[in-house]
Design a protein around this nucleic acid. Structure first.
Lengths: 116, 116
DNA sequence: TTAGCGTATCGACAAGCGTGAATATTTATC
DNA sequence: GATAAATATTCACGCTTGTCGATACGCTAA
């Protein structure tokens, strides 16, 4: 079933939790996305980026929002990126992360949705 | 901020991720719920219960759906219960778990919502 | 080229987590 | 009572994960 898609892309193609039992394969993919969000720091990072103007934020801004080392923040951003929740773009020395709002929307409808 | 509420109850009272940055306190509570769902087995358990007729299922049925020991399933159900995603009711020797669909809906609107 | 800055990677460590075997608890039946 | 069945708890064991310090990489400006 895996075609090199990121976990978030898998989320887009299935009925909500309450509609029918999740297959093991799908559950494994979706759980990766939820696990990525299941950390206070990453959840705040995601929220900071998503609520920032333009839906994107520079790493330099994000570092200052936490009492954590720069490598730690970088690590969390990588986790969110690998799972497909954040896009990464480098501009000069700075790196900007953008939230994939459709991914969040898909995840939301999988969790709480009733349709499809 | 904690008043003895379960983590899912905390989810109900805040704006979506993309609306404004999550506070650290809220992020900590919400991440507990997401962490609970961030496991393939628990995600399937949640889906099995939620999609079952009447929105509830007996543990006896759930055990058979996995290649895992009974204590392990019991453990996962406990995690989902403690976080407030599942309600527990004992009828005779059997235990039934029911999905809190409003909790799922609240979580969904926090993740993917734009309103409020 | 060198220096400096922003970001990522590596290595290591403690803490947390999923799992099963053994055991306990609760309820129904004999 | 005793026995059996359904579910929960305890304990122990690897594996994963969050964190930081040290270091490397990439870009820009002197």
């Amino acid at each position: 079933m895996d075609l090199g898609l990121t976990p978030v892309q898998t989320v887009a193609c299935c009925s909500p939790l309450s509609r029918e039992p999740l297959s093991q394969d799908v559950a494994e993919q979706v759980s990766l996305v939820l696990k990525a969000l299941g950390d206070p720091v990453r959840l705040r990072l995601m929220s900071l980026v998503a609520s920032h103007e333009g839906g994107e934020a520079c790493v330099c801004d994000l570092n200052d929002a936490f009492d954590l080392s720069q490598p730690t923040i970088s690590h969390h951003l990588k986790v969110l990126h690998e799972v497909g929740l954040l896009e990464r773009e480098k501009r000069g020395v700075w790196v900007y992360y953008r939230a994939r709002t459709e991914a969040l929307a898909n995840l939301a409808s999988l969790i709480g949705g009733t349709a499809k």
